[in-house]
Design a binder for these strands. Structure first.
Lengths: 207, 207
DNA sequence: GGTAGATACTCCGTTTCGGAGTATGTCTAT
DNA sequence: ATAGACATACTCCGAAACGGAGTATCTACC
């Protein structure tokens, strides 16, 4: 705590939040973080490292367990951890960040051919469908009582609603975009869509 | 080209794409990348470094310019660069990645108080409004002819439509979520929303 | 002609990435 | 019962990215 401890990140607090629900082993944390982690992408190695950082900050405690020949460490939140988690929840949120490889390809699609553009749009649609499927799995588990935290269903409803909205909107966009592009002779000669741009500027979608 | 050259990333190809439109200085690249770069977040220092990497790969060429006392380098795409850009456009897209700090706060909001949850929802709404405003600026520039690439308006229509869709969906979610939460006594005692979860599983949004 | 603030970058210590490596667990065929 | 294959559960480390401090030039205004 005193000397060199790394700065806590959103991942740190996400892990701390999971520990706030119940104690977890590193592997469980990695699984859960991946599952709920549609909202925050990060490398697995970082997730595995966070519990140690939390202990160094005094926000979590570690207990050794033996599970056959395998040594495990089970981490729990400390009272200081709970306080710090509440403090974080009251911090202003940082701006969302994205990495949409497919949309970057759409953005420069006039330097390639039409097939590639349609492929990028299709990639967005496929991702939307995977996103919807993921949301369906989670909501299904909650309705059948397969979930470890039934009393969190109202919170899960909020977050999964956003996921479903994102998936639905992306599908609508992909359908519309595909139709547009199919009517173009090629990628660098589309119609100048003055009315579309006006509409978009006013915050209205074309679908 | 022969020895140690760093692997090209989506940022590299984004920069290469900009050079595919016309030659740029590093500063111009950074500006343009930020502007179009809603779809790919990355640090400024990385963007400034990419042109050098592209030259090392033989995909861009550098020309020194004097602009008063300030030395500038203007980068242009090479024929090999154009080929490589087209190859990239035909690559399958990598999965989108997000970092939604506010949604992480929503996800663990039952460990904090109601005010913080409403704050996180409000942060999402505020971001949606900034996103819409950004899209409006770009589309407005295109309709008034203030844009350097009027013949790319059809492509810009595609990408900005997604941005506007994202902004609209986020606003709708925020309105709905705020209403839900205002009816809760506190963050850890919401109604068990069985019908909501069923609806979400079927891919239908509650708004 | 001085200086305050904006512009246009570079530099570098810290953090993250991501894939290879390691060790244990489990299943299946013989 | 046991060898081999595949899955599970992590650790390690070199390369890349981050982001903020630092530097130099330009521009506007007094």
């Amino acid at each position: 705590m005193a000397g060199r401890t790394k700065k806590l990140t959103t991942v740190s607090y996400g892990i701390l939040g999971l520990l706030g629900l119940r104690p977890h082993t590193p592997y469980e944390l990695a699984q859960q973080f991946r599952r709920s982690g549609t909202f925050w992408a990060s490398a697995e190695s970082v997730v595995y490292n966070e519990p140690k950082a939390l202990v160094a900050h005094g926000l979590a405690s570690a207990a050794a367990e033996a599970d056959g020949g395998r040594r495990r460490t089970r981490y729990s939140i400390t009272p200081a951890g709970r306080r710090e988690l509440r403090r974080w929840l009251s911090d202003p949120a940082v701006e969302p960040q994205f990495q949409f490889d497919a949309m970057m390809k759409v953005l420069f699609s006039d330097l390639g051919d039409k097939e590639d553009l349609l492929g990028a749009i299709e990639a967005m649609r496929a991702w939307a469908e995977r996103t919807q499927a993921g949301a369906a799995t989670i909501t299904h588990d909650y309705t059948t009582g397969d979930e470890p935290y039934p009393d969190r269903a109202h919170i899960v409803g909020l977050t999964q609603a956003y996921r479903v909205g994102l998936a639905q909107m992306t599908r609508q966009w992909a359908d519309w975009a595909e139709q547009q592009v199919r009517n173009w002779p090629d990628t660098h000669n589309g119609p100048a869509p003055a009315d579309l741009l006006t509409r978009l500027g006013a915050g209205r979608t074309p679908w």
